[in-house]
């Protein structure tokens, strides 16, 4: 039974696109082969109880960081968490004795439909792994994250297919990890940018309570 930890780095916690993407991936996992745990950084911020989270992360076979893109990079709370985790992993002797440290994956979702905008954030995760002595595997950069979070209907499910396929492939990888790091995968829901932007702008106008 391999242990997989999903770390949700969205300040919105359970109510986030990152949460949707994690749940989708977990649903694909075979629970006879894998045990999945989800940690919310937004909860750790409130409780300040990092120690037990770090201890459990260090014992995992695989870690999947899922977070939104903020200014082309991980949100401040993700960076804070990565810095603390690095410090823990580099000072805790028990971890140094383990022969294999966890393999790391990431799912980054952005507001813009251009999935490649997530590339810097994924590189930052790879740099973190190198510093913390973890094994970077690969990441998914997903565009139009706010759309992915929307409740499924037939049309939306069809549009979401490219992303759902990538999550399913990630699930296969989590169950049968490759020996070497793979290339990052960039994917968005199937629709042209101008249609996505038009729909997003209409929605912003509807949501706005202040001057438009």
């Amino acid at each position: 039974m391999s242990k997989i930890c999903f770390v949700n780095g969205s300040p919105r916690g359970k109510n986030s696109g990152s949460s949707y993407l994690i749940e989708r991936t977990v649903a694909f996992l075979n629970d006879k082969k894998t045990e999945a745990v989800i940690i919310y950084i937004s909860d750790l911020l409130k409780s300040g109880e990092y120690q037990s989270a770090f201890e459990s992360i260090a014992m995992m076979d695989r870690i999947v960081f899922a977070f939104p893109l903020y200014q082309d990079s991980p949100p401040g709370i993700m960076l804070d968490f990565l810095g603390k985790l690095e410090a823990y992993l580099l000072t805790d002797n028990e971890n140094r004795k383990r022969d294999s440290l966890p393999q790391v994956y990431a799912i980054v979702n952005s507001g813009f439909i251009e999935s490649r905008n997530n590339r810097h954030a994924l590189k930052i995760l790879a740099h973190f792994c190198r510093r913390a002595g973890l094994n970077w595997q690969y990441g998914l950069g997903i565009g139009a994250g706010e759309f992915m979070k929307k409740q499924d209907n037939l049309l939306y499910l069809w549009m979401k297919q490219p992303v759902i396929k990538a999550l399913s492939a990630l699930c296969n990888e989590l169950e049968n990890p490759s020996r070497h790091p793979q290339d990052n995968v960039f994917v968005s829901p199937g629709m042209p940018a101008f249609i996505y932007n038009f729909a997003a702008n209409k929605e912003w106008r509807n949501r706005m309570e202040c001057k438009k």
Partner: peptide, 25 residues
């Protein structure tokens, strides 16, 4: 890690209000 420090990243995240939400090409 090739990014900013946490403090500076918080600042950059927090100046987001200076844009409008609307998306343009």
């Amino acid at each position: 890690f090739g990014c900013y420090s946490t403090v500076i990243k918080h600042v950059l995240d927090r100046i987001t209000p200076n844009n409008l939400p609307f998306l343009i090409r």
